[in-house]
Simulated scan of single mutants.
Amino acid sequence: MTKGLKIVTIGGGSSYTPELVEGFIKRYDELPVRELWLVDIPEGEEKLNIVGTLAKRMVEKAGVPIDIHLTLDRRKALKDADFVTTQFRVGLLQARAKDERIPLKYGVIGQETNGPGGLFKGLRTIPVILEIAKDIEELCPNAWLVNFTNPAGMVTEALLRYSNLKKVVGLCNVPIGIKMGVAKALDVDVDRVEVQFAGLNHMVFGLDVFLDGVSVKEQVIEAMGDPKNAMTMKNISGAEWEPDFLKALNVIPCGYHRYYFKTKEMLEHELEASQTEGTRAEVVQKVEKELFELYKDPNLVIKPPQLEKRGGAYYSDAACNLISSIYNDKHDIQPV
């Protein structure tokens, strides 16, 4: 009998945590999580308690024996962990709002993972994740670190270059979002779709798309020219792709490519939004407020559908699929 897995989530008070908990519940048969430790900092304690209590209700409702632990003591949580996931935001959403507003003031795209804002965020985040890496080295040297913290490309590269950890994987929900979008555009079950990815986070391209093993790239590119199949993220709105441009590109772009291929339109859209509804961070602050009010409801025992208004839809599927693939040595292909 396996002793079960110990998983630690740093940034456990995140509004995304119910996604992750749902992912572990759904896969309990193949991924026997025994303990899930949700870790946060004192500033996030109230959110941690709200999310953690919801997580406990979710596992109880599902009838799976996962022990949920809430703590502000990272070292206590990390001891002997099998997997560590990171999903934190240094400086909270207030810092993200600055990442977005400051560049806009100078007529430059303001975004949390690209351009100057992405660099601000990287410079704040990398020193913190390198400290976490030291704790992992000491307290659970055999654990896998699955990083979801943005800017995921920079953060993961920093870990691979400047920490001694070898089992580090950076993860993002863009590839799984594209795969889901393709399935929807083709009106088929997602299990029948495979996408070949290349590139860096967040600039990943789909080089080819297969339906039941047969390439359907041309058909998908055609479908993407229709605005109803936009395949973008909740956190990226603005310019649509032109069908001729997609055909000339001849690969599937991701939502973030709009910042590069449509810089002028995206900047105009952001400037306008910042004057009306606010920057993305300011919109998210409102969404989060509503989510945490929902999470407090003692009758809520599942992940609420409103969570999909956040930009991280399918994130738990990406993270849990990866963890299960490693744990079960599935020999499948994971876009990381």
Rank of each mutant, 00 (worst) to 15 (best):
K61L: 03
L36F: 13
V284H: 02
L186D: 08
Q219D: 12
G122C: 08
D208Q: 12
I326D: 10
P116R: 14
R310Q: 02
D208C: 08
R89M: 15
H202Y: 07
A183E: 03
I221Y: 06
W241N: 04
N328L: 15
E222H: 12
I68P: 07
V188L: 04
S15N: 01
E308H: 00
L145I: 15
D99S: 13
P42S: 10
K234P: 04
Y327Q: 06
D82W: 09
E22Y: 00
L145P: 04
D73I: 07
N235E: 02
T263K: 15
T149W: 03
Q334S: 08
N321D: 15
G181Y: 00
N229E: 04
K184E: 00
L159C: 12
Y16I: 01
V287C: 00
R34H: 14
L267E: 11
E35L: 05
M233I: 01
E45Q: 15
K61F: 14
I41C: 05
K228D: 09
Y295T: 03
V108D: 05
M1H: 14
P42F: 11
P305Q: 02
V8N: 09
S163V: 11
V284W: 00
A319P: 03
R101M: 08
R74C: 09
W144M: 08
R101G: 03
E268V: 07
D191E: 14
Y28R: 13
R27C: 02
T125F: 07
V193E: 06
R27Y: 05
K167D: 06
V51W: 04
S274L: 05
L200D: 11
L211T: 08
Q306D: 05
R280L: 12
L123D: 11
P65D: 13
L322D: 01
V204C: 08
N150L: 02
E270A: 06
V59Q: 05
I176Q: 02
E194N: 13
V39Q: 11
V108C: 04
A185T: 04
H269F: 15
T156P: 04
L38A: 06
P305V: 00
A273T: 05
L294S: 06
A158R: 06
M231F: 00
Q306H: 07
S324Q: 12
Q219R: 15
N201H: 10
P18C: 03
I333T: 14
L72P: 03
A55R: 03
A239T: 09
I333F: 14
G238W: 07
C172S: 08
F24G: 03
K56L: 05
S237V: 06
L123G: 03
K303Q: 09
T276Y: 09
N250Q: 10
T9H: 14
M203I: 05
P127K: 10
L36A: 12
G63I: 10
Q334V: 14
E242G: 11
E288T: 00
I41F: 09
V182E: 01
